[in-house]
Structures are given as C-alpha cells and as structure tokens.
C-alpha cells in the first residue's frame, strides 16, 4: 500500500513539476527536439544518398551483342542461362528487328546514317541481351559466366568496359556516403549526448534548493529522485512526439521537391519513416530516456547529500 501510495505521489509530483516549471520544461524539450531533428535529418540524408546510389546502380545495364547470324533460339537459351544466375536481376531479349527499328527511330533525323543503312541493304544488327544485376560488382562475374564454349563463339561484343568506370565511381561514392554518414552520425550522437547531459544537469541545478528542502523535511532519496526521473522520461516522450510530428510534416513538404530534384528515384521518405517508425523513433525515445535517467541520477546525487 505504502509503495503504491508513494509511486502515485511521485507520478503526481512529476506532472506538477513538468507543468509548474513550464518554461524550464519548454526549454529542455526544445533542446531535445532540436537534437533529435539533427539526428533525423542525418538519417534522411543518409537514406536519400543510399536511395540515389541504389537507383543509379539499378539503372546500370550491360548489353551483350550477338553475331547477326545467331538464331534467336541460341540467344534465348543464353537468356535462360543468365536468368539462372543468382547475381542477375533481369535479362531483356532484344531481337535483331527490334534493334534495327530502335536504331532507325533514334537516328530518324540523321539522313546520312539512314542513307548508309540503306546502302548496306539488310539488317546489320544481331540480337542482343540487356542485363541488369543486383549489384554492379556482379557484372564482371556475369560476363565471365557467359563465356562458355556454348555461347562464346556467337558473342560479337560486350559493352561492359564502357560502364566499368561509372560502376566503379558509383561504388566508390556509395562507400564514401556510407562511411561519411557513419562518421557524421557518430559525431552528432556524441554532440547530442553532451547537449542532453548538460540540459538535464542545468534543469536539476535549478532545483537544487528544492531537493535539499525535500530531504530536510524527511524525504528519502528515492522519493526525491522519483519525480525527476519520471520528468526525464516525460521530456523524452514529449520531445519524441513533437519530433515525429515535425519529421512527417517536413517530409510531406520535402517529398515533392525531392522527387523533382532527384527525378526517377523510387523513394518515399515519408514511407521510409513510416515503415521504420518503431525502430527509428522508438530507439530515439529509448536512448533519450536512458540518457535522461542516467544524467538525472548523476546530476541529482550531489544535491541529495543533505
């Protein structure tokens, strides 16, 4: 009975402190919210960076051109073989006729090229396979894999070399973004911890006289600490809730801009935050709360020695 009575009183005092020290609560939560926004902005930039890299990677395709006299059956057999490889995402068959039509369409305003084509008299193109892979790293393997005795003699050209530099650059950029993001995240988290640590210390310092008074009228340490600890959790919960609102409002505002600027990227920041809400916001609330509790315990300790 006594335990529950004390617990209820601690909860009541925490709420009283929270609302009666309104401006202190507002300032503390503002610092928390700003810190969380910084962390989430970093997450957004990282995710957007990864999505951009992934999108570009997905657009990288390698074509294999077959000799003009190669039958479609052989090319389709090669297509089946490639699709059987786990590294291959998709293989599109382009027939010789389709290649000719596409070429003509592409150069419809270039009379010289079209005349040259007439001169040749016939279809100079062979069939082709357009390959996309799960990762640009896999292209080397895929192109080596196709060089079996069964298909090698029919292959006229592989245009991988053109993409090699691009793929390497993308891979490089992707790695840099990942490493840079991690370093930046670590740096920001460290700053965030220091800011929160200091904010709570200041909030506790403001109450140092009250802590002493509580002790002098017979409160035990837990009765004094309790409301402050609960307040730290309340600050964390309220700040996380405010920050969630801000993040979704910003995403709503940013999304059209992002899709215009990074046209063609299949990425919705809102959806990303929604899908990972529990993990992202839950973990931020948890970290904030644990940090708040730890700091409060640490900060209040010296004032309890009355």
């Amino acid at each position: 009975m006594s335990f529950f009575l004390s617990a209820l009183r601690i909860i009541r005092f925490a709420f009283q402190n929270f609302f009666r020290n309104f401006w202190l609560s507002v300032i503390t939560m503002s610092v928390f919210v700003l810190t969380l926004i910084t962390v989430n902005a970093l997450i957004f930039i990282n995710v957007l960076g990864s999505a951009t890299v992934q999108s570009v990677q997905e657009k990288v395709e390698v074509s294999i051109y077959f000799e003009p006299d190669t039958s479609d059956d052989i090319v389709k057999s090669a297509q089946g073989y490639l699709l059987g490889l786990s590294q291959v995402r998709n293989v599109t068959f382009v027939s010789a006729e389709d290649a000719l039509v596409a070429f003509k369409e592409h150069h419809q305003n270039d009379a010289v090229i079209l005349d040259s084509l007439e001169e040749i008299d016939g279809n100079p193109f062979g069939s082709a396979l357009v390959i996309s892979a799960w990762s640009p790293d896999d292209f080397t393997f895929i192109l080596e894999a196709i060089e079996t005795p069964e298909y090698q003699r029919y292959i006229k050209k592989k245009d991988f070399t053109d993409y090699e530099a691009v793929i390497s650059k993308i891979q490089n950029l992707s790695d840099r973004i990942r490493i840079g993001g991690l370093v930046l995240a670590g740096f920001f988290i460290l700053i965030a911890i220091l800011i929160i640590f200091n904010t709570i210390r200041v909030a506790t310092y403001v109450h140092r006289d009250e802590i002493g008074i509580m002790k002098l009228v017979g409160a035990n340490d837990w009765f004094v600490r309790g409301p402050f600890l609960l307040e730290a959790i309340m600050y964390s919960a309220a700040s996380t809730a405010i920050m969630v609102g801000i993040v979704f409002l910003s995403m709503r505002w940013l999304e059209p801009w992002v899709s215009t600027y990074f046209g063609g990227i299949d990425f919705s920041a809102q959806q990303f935050f929604l899908d990972n809400a529990l993990l992202i916001f839950g973990s931020q609330f948890l970290v904030l709360s644990v940090l708040g509790l730890f700091t409060t315990m640490f900060a209040i300790r010296r004032y309890l020695r009355v």
Binding site: R20, I213, G218
Partner: peptide, 27 residues
C-alpha cells in the same frame, strides 16, 4: 520539527501542498 531562517518552502507548491508534503514523504 525543523524551522529555518529562510523558511525553506517549496516554491512551486501551495501552502497546503508544502505542509502536506512532510506527511506525504512519510507515507
């Protein structure tokens, strides 16, 4: 019972709450 020169009242509690606090801490 302890009485101080600077009263040592809890500033954000009312008169009634300040007095009740001494009883509340004792359960």
């Amino acid at each position: 019972g302890i009485v101080f020169q600077d009263y040592k009242l809890l500033p954000r509690k009312t008169v009634e709450e300040n007095v009740a606090f001494a009883l509340e801490v004792a359960g």
